[in-house]
């Protein structure tokens, strides 16, 4: 069984919901043999101080990330669309909160 070393324990990304009503947030990663084990280990590693009420684990290898080289074309075009933000529009004070 020499072929199965720690290298083969895949890496998992851990997402924790800190309380009901809040989204799951990435909090770190860990190694585990499979999903069930990853979930348990995430509980022991990342919620020792009551940090969570729900956990997601995702194989790190399954995450598709955008390429940093594409940052310009992906994200810069949004920068001049200031009309998407509510503060772009001036409303008379007497209207109150809108």
């Amino acid at each position: 069984m020499n072929a199965t070393t720690l290298k083969d324990w895949p890496l998992w990304e851990v997402f924790v919901r800190s309380k009901q009503g809040i989204e799951h947030k990435h909090c770190g990663s860990l190694h585990a043999a499979d999903a069930a084990q990853a979930l348990h280990m995430a509980r022991d590693v990342y919620t020792r101080r009551q940090e969570g009420v729900s956990i997601w684990v995702v194989p790190s290898a399954k995450i598709t990330a955008s390429n940093p080289d594409d940052k310009g074309e992906l994200f810069d075009p949004a920068s001049d669309k200031i009309y998407r933000h509510p503060s772009f529009y001036e409303i008379p004070d007497e209207v109150g909160h809108m």
Binding site: M1, T4, L6, D8, A32, A33, D34, A36, L39
Partner: peptide
Amino acid sequence: RDAAMAYARKYRERTITE
């Protein structure tokens, strides 16, 4: 560690418990 991995391999299709 070997045991955990061997088990996970054997039952990969069975352990979809996300």
